[in-house]
Design a protein around this nucleic acid. Sequence first.
DNA 1: TTGAAAGCGCTAACAA
DNA 2: TTGTTAGCGCTTTCAA
Lengths: 333, 333
Amino acid sequence: MMDVAREAGVSPMTVSRAFKSDSYVSAQTRKAIIEAADRLGYVMNSTAAGLSSQKTGFIAVTIPSINNANFADTVRGLTDGLRQSRLQVLLGSTNYDVDEEERLVRQLLTRRPEAIVLTGGVHTDKCRKMLENAGIAVFETWDLPKDPIDDVVGFSNANAAALLVRHLISTGRRKIAFLGGDASRDTRGFDRRRGFVNEMNAQNLDGNRLIEAGPPPISMREGAEAMAKLLTLWPDTQAVVCVSDLAAFGALSECQRRGVDVPRRIAICGFGAYEISEICVPPITTIDPQCYRIGQVVAQKIIKKIGLEPHTSSNTELGIQPSLVARASTGNY
Amino acid sequence: MMDVAREAGVSPMTVSRAFKSDSYVSAQTRKAIIEAADRLGYVMNSTAAGLSSQKTGFIAVTIPSINNANFADTVRGLTDGLRQSRLQVLLGSTNYDVDEEERLVRQLLTRRPEAIVLTGGVHTDKCRKMLENAGIAVFETWDLPKDPIDDVVGFSNANAAALLVRHLISTGRRKIAFLGGDASRDTRGFDRRRGFVNEMNAQNLDGNRLIEAGPPPISMREGAEAMAKLLTLWPDTQAVVCVSDLAAFGALSECQRRGVDVPRRIAICGFGAYEISEICVPPITTIDPQCYRIGQVVAQKIIKKIGLEPHTSSNTELGIQPSLVARASTGNY
DNA sequence: TTGAAAGCGCTAACAA
DNA sequence: TTGTTAGCGCTTTCAA
C-alpha cells in the first residue's frame, strides 16, 4: 500500500480510503490511485484490513454436505443475498456429524466471522458454548430448535412430514410406510420420521412400517434397496413417505424395475423439491422447503444486523412455510 | 492471548507455541495453557496469525456453480485431502462466467490464499495477470489448457466426447446428435461439442445435428425440452450425446413420456457419472470424469508444494483419464 | 524450553 | 479532502 501511495503521490491512508467504496476521496485522486495500483499489480490485503478494523467480512456457514442440492441452494440464496455487500461466505461441511460440526465451528471462529449460519438446531454443549461466547449473530436454519442459540430461520420437519401423511390419507391410502436413514445422525431426517409416526398415530393408523436404509444421507441406490425391502416385508403397503426426493427416486426406479405401478399399486412421496422429482416419470409428490429462500432471508437479516453493531440480538425467529407439491406419484388411487 | 498467558502464568509467546501442534512446549505447560484457554473461552485469532506469519492457511477454490454434484465432488476430494493439514478451503462460485471469475479471483486474492484452484482453463487477461502476479501455486482443473498458468489437473473434454461417439458407432448407430447449451459460457460443454463434431467428421458422419438448449448449465427440464426439439427436427436420429447426465436424464424422461423406446428407438448418453445415471431406468451410458479424484490429486500436490516454500513451480501437469461407463441406455440396438 | 522486542499491512481517530 | 499517529493480535527472531 505504501508503494501504491508513493506511485500515486499520496499518503497510504488515502490509498486505503480509495479502496473502500464509501469513503470520502475525490474522484480524480481515486482514479489516480486505482491506476497506480493496477500498474503495480497491487491487490488489497484483507487479512491486515480485518485485523485492524476488527471486521473480517466473513460470514461463516456450516452445511452437512456440500454434495446436497438442498443445502447448496440455501448457500446460493445466502451468497446471492450478500453479493452487493462487503460480506463473503466462508463455507464448511460437517458430514452430518455434531462432533465434526464442533471442530468446524472452532476452526471457523478463529477466522473471526461477523456472523455464523448453522444447518440444524442440534449441537454439542461445547459447540453451543463457543457460539454463545463468540459475540456474533448466530443463525440456526432448516430446523425449529426449542431453545435457540440466537436467531432462527427454519421450519418444522415433523410438521412437513405430517403434511405428506395427511395428503396420502386424503387420497385414500391407509397402509403407509416411512423410508429413511437410521436415527443416528441426520436429526432433520429423524424429525421427519417422528412427524410421520405421530401423525399416523393421531389418525389411528399403524405408524410402525419404518424402513431404515443405513446412515444418512440416503442415496438413490439406498432408496432403491430400501424399497425392495419394503415390498418384501409389507407387500400390501399402499404408500411410502421417503426422507428425501433422492431416496424417493431410488424407490421409484426400483418399482419401475419390478413393474410395480406407481401410483396405483403404491404411491411415493419425497422431500426437498429436488429437480429430479419434477422431471421423472411419474413426477414425485414432495415438500418444497424453500431452500433458496432460507438463504435469502438469512442474508437480509445479516445485512440488517451487521449494520447495527455491536451485535444486538433482535432474535426474530422466522418460520419458513414448506409447501406440499402434489404430483402424479400420489395420484389416481 | 495475553489474558490466557496471565491465567496460565506464562508469556504470550508460550501460549502461541502451545496452540501450534509442532512447537516445542513441555506437555504440562501446554496442558495448563489449554485449560486456561478453555476456562476463559479463548479461541485463536487466525487473522492476526495470518498477518504475522504471512501464512493464512487458505486454499482458494473457484467452481462454476455450488449446485453441481460434479464440482461439489471435486471440492469434497480437495477438502478431504487437506483435512489433516493446517489448510482450509475458501470457496467461491463464478456462475459459469469469466468476468464473474475475475471479480471472484480478485476478492479471493485479497485473502492471501497460499494456493488457488480454478475450474477450467479459460480466463480473462486481467484475471490471468493477477494469478501470475500472486506468487502462489495456481491449479487449473477439469480442462487441459494449451498454455497453462502453472499446474494442471484435468482432462480433455473433447477426447471424452469422442469416446462416446466411438462407443455409439461401435453399437451400430450412425445418425447421432449432440444436445448441449449454447457455446456462450460453458467452455467445457463447448469442448465436448467440438469433440463430438470432430469425431463425427473423422468417421465420415454428419456432425451437424446439434441441439442448443439455452445458456449453461443445462437443467433436466431443458434436456427434456431439447429432446422434444430433436425428435421433431431429426426424427430418424438413432443416438444422442448429451452435455451432462442431467440433460441426458431429462431427455430420457421425455422419451418415456412419449413412449419412445430407449435404447432401441434412440440411444442416450450423458457425461459426469452423476448418481442418477446409474439408478434410472434404463441406466444411462456416461463418462466418469473422476471428479473426486481431481480434488484429491490437487490436495496432494498442494501439500507437497506448500511444504517447499516459497512457491517453486514444479508444474507437473497431471492428466486425468476419464472412463467410459457403458450402460443399458445405449445397448440392444 | 521459555521470554522479550519488533513488526506483519492495514484502519480508527484525530488533526489540518 | 487528505495526512499523522497509534495499534489491531499474533509470530518471527534472537537471547537466555
